[in-house]
Design a protein around this nucleic acid. Structure first.
Lengths: 224, 224
DNA sequence: TTTCGTAGGTTTACGCTGTAAGTTATACAC
DNA sequence: GTGTATAACTTACAGCGTAAACCTACGAAA
């Protein structure tokens, strides 16, 4: 017979790098990075672990590819608005992407080989700055501050043990209870009079720092 | 006999948490965080892996303790100078500590239980800001920007594949050779006309952003 | 001096990990 | 049909964190 060898066999959709990476991202989103093992990832794709090695060189390559997918989600500057708005929007987009994939931030410090999406992103940011009149040195400065701040913020945000506002208050309260207030008076004060207030939202901190940096960069460009 | 049971036995110095953590930090400094396994750490201390569990609850606890040791290396503000100098110095001290222990940065995003040195550090920073006239909200903003920037910078620095200036030029050159210059023109330009220049030093980028942020914070405090 | 509890070490074992090596099955070209 | 490339599977190994059980030396009590 010309049909598949055995009756019940479905015509097996072939794997490819894209599908492997996508499944890796999904798995990490769902269960954290520690739940991404070659065997479990194979399981998600209905395939044995070793089959993945036909599409990624090894686990590091897999993680590099996953990181690059996250970078691919960041909106590139579009050159429609002034540099400040563009930088602001792409920074916010970057933070959102890192927030959607909390595992990515911690991975970034160990990967040293940027993928194509990462390079495209960097190139586009530098280009926007250059066209806005930043010197090469100043563009390098700007790129460094903005990215460092964004990654660092994402990292701090991830290490907070809460996500919603209600959760925040709840967790802060139990922490505070264990916290010797006489040893850490300022920390205690800030927790009580700031973090525990009903409209506290750490995510909104991001834009304060972002605007502070953007204003500073504008000044630096104009005085240099 | 009242001497040790068998002649050649040395009087076995007992382990303790301090010694375990210290050995963990040393091992990670030397061979990277992936070389810190309970078995290898035991080996360093001439002890079986399971013996470590008498002094740390589990591996996470070990890592938490190691991170806290790094925080313990950061100079606290001393209240001798004005807030800006104090903040500047402790930020630089923090970056140096993270630079001495490159494994620490990547770990920080997954640990959510700060140790005593970490708490003491945070408390002291907030205290300095409050005494300098920052409102609680503004002190929280300041703390967030400064720390995010510092951690993010440390992370970026770690993911650079070079350390010395000569190495920088060397690596940049080979990267550049592989980089399709027509696809990433601005990245190529910056590499050629900035990174490859003989006196380029990424570490010095840090202070540019730091001063930019400190100036911005001063303005924010005074106008709020 | 003998006894005994306990703190801190060791041994063994289990299920998990990444991946090298070897084998088999599928799909397409001729 | 036959040959060949591709991509799957199977097996195996060394290393991981750590639970459970065990051993042994030291300090205090009897």
């Amino acid at each position: 017979m010309t049909a598949p060898t055995h009756p019940g066999a479905e015509p097996r959709v072939p794997l490819n790098r894209e599908r492997v990476l996508r499944a890796g991202v999904a798995l990490a989103d769902e269960g954290g990075i520690e739940s991404v093992s070659m065997r479990k990832l194979g399981g998600q794709l209905a395939v044995e672990a070793m089959s993945l090695y036909n599409h990624v060189a090894n686990k590091d390559d897999l993680l590099d590819g996953m990181i690059d997918m996250v970078f691919g989600e960041i909106d590139l500057p579009s050159a429609n608005a002034d540099w400040k708005t563009e930088m602001r929007e792409r920074a916010i987009s970057a933070r959102e992407a890192l927030g959607r994939h909390p595992w990515a931030t911690g991975l970034m410090d160990s990967r040293t080989t940027p993928g194509p999406a990462t390079l495209r992103h960097h190139d586009s940011v530098i280009g926007t700055l250059r066209e806005a009149g930043f010197s090469i040195e100043m563009a390098a400065h700007a790129f460094s501050v903005l990215d460092s701040y964004t990654y660092g913020f994402a990292m701090q945000e991830q290490s907070l043990p809460f996500e919603t506002e209600e959760e925040t208050a709840e967790v802060a309260e139990t922490i505070l209870a264990q916290l010797p207030a006489d040893e850490y008076p300022h920390l205690a004060e800030m927790t009580i009079e700031h973090v525990l207030l009903p409209d506290y939202d750490y995510a909104s901190e991001y834009e304060f720092g972002l605007d502070l940096i953007l204003d500073g960069l504008e000044r630096a460009r104009d005085t240099a």
